[in-house]
Design a protein around this nucleic acid. Sequence first.
DNA 1: GGGGAGAGATGCCGC
DNA 2: GCGGCATTTCTCCCC
Lengths: 245, 245
Amino acid sequence: MNLSEQITIIKNAINRHDVIILFCNCQVEYSGRAKSFLASGDRVIFIKHDYSVLIHRPDGRNPINWMPANSTIKLTPSKSSLLFNIKSLKPLELMNIVINDLYKVSFNHLIDNEQLKLVGTEKDMSDMIYNNPELISKNFIPLNREEQTKYGFVDVFGHDGNGNFIVIECKRYTAGLDSITQLRRYVEKIKKSKGINKVKGIIAAPNITSNALKMLNDWNFEYKIISPPCTLEMDNENQLNLDEF
Amino acid sequence: MNLSEQITIIKNAINRHDVIILFCNCQVEYSGRAKSFLASGDRVIFIKHDYSVLIHRPDGRNPINWMPANSTIKLTPSKSSLLFNIKSLKPLELMNIVINDLYKVSFNHLIDNEQLKLVGTEKDMSDMIYNNPELISKNFIPLNREEQTKYGFVDVFGHDGNGNFIVIECKRYTAGLDSITQLRRYVEKIKKSKGINKVKGIIAAPNITSNALKMLNDWNFEYKIISPPCTLEMDNENQLNLDEF
DNA sequence: GGGGAGAGATGCCGC
DNA sequence: GCGGCATTTCTCCCC
């Protein structure tokens, strides 16, 4: 297949909003929110249904370069092979891909209307604590989830029945320094907005870093070892048993 | 091509550490750091050289499901089509992919030894300020970059020649509430470690949110409108002119 | 659309 | 390996 035919085929696939994969050797220039240059190497170029463009290296989870959805994709022949000019607005971003060698092209029209069901998130954690306040202490009485403040959203807010407000910040993995400063910000905001000084801060997480623990002690906050819930209800009868794996 | 031949071809490609693309209809179960289920739909499965596995939907920059590098990938026939069992250790993560319909398979051995040259990062910003202290003020004298403290790393640290220390936190885009709490943490740490109370905090960023600006004023910090540098030196003579695009 | 914050974040660097 | 932190973060949600 000659180059001109190949360009026509790819252009048609783009116009149909097919998902397109190119195995190729290419170099990439990007200018927009930052500026980058990637010298020639073997990569996979990914043009998606939403006109986002991903450039994946042979390794790693993330694209080495990419353009956001709704980009304008121009494809032209060059002396050696193909040239992509990709443009996106707000913010203005430009990308040029010089294809030195096109190994393989593959495309298909894909339809996917399903949504991922996910459990074990931080939201699941705060729900669990709200519904099982004894996880914090036998006195804890939750009042709100996701309490809105000008200085941020509190995961779980409540009191202990003795006039002490309680602010809980959940982390699904390890709480670090940033978690403590975040909690501190909420505690101070609650103190100010409620006009009360008796506000206790609690970090709920399965792990905490040593420095975070020290900073937490400095601020008289508390740490509760709590893990996110991890039980997925599957109504699908074709369900696989991950335990058997 | 029958199913058994197809499995052999894919297995060989996996053993060669080829990058493999499958256009297919599939359902995905994941259990590990969290738990998820994704009902049947059209997707692209991506097996990389490092044995990471990505499942991409027709839209969006990120994989909807994935497994990290160095996973163990088992491929077996099922009643309808193929079944992937993928396993990763530390932490233990399991994934099952049921392929209902395999549309296309493509693979290629890819080699990429190049590194991305990127400019316009936060590090570039702090370097720029360190080398051009007048961007902050005519009195600013930088002392260190990336000053290490137990409670975090200060982007740029210096003084004003009048006994006031200066702590600068850079953000390459918009500074938010978290940037202010971060700066506050550094300022307090410097005050404590140096045993001095005259420490000024400065946010250097092209934008700041309204709430962050308010909090910054509450803490008597300063805001300097500074953008990250964005000039890429290209030694490649095949350089494209992005401006002409 | 701005703002805040999580993510199965990932990836990098430093100790 | 832990820890702190940026990311062309992306993505979701709420106002």
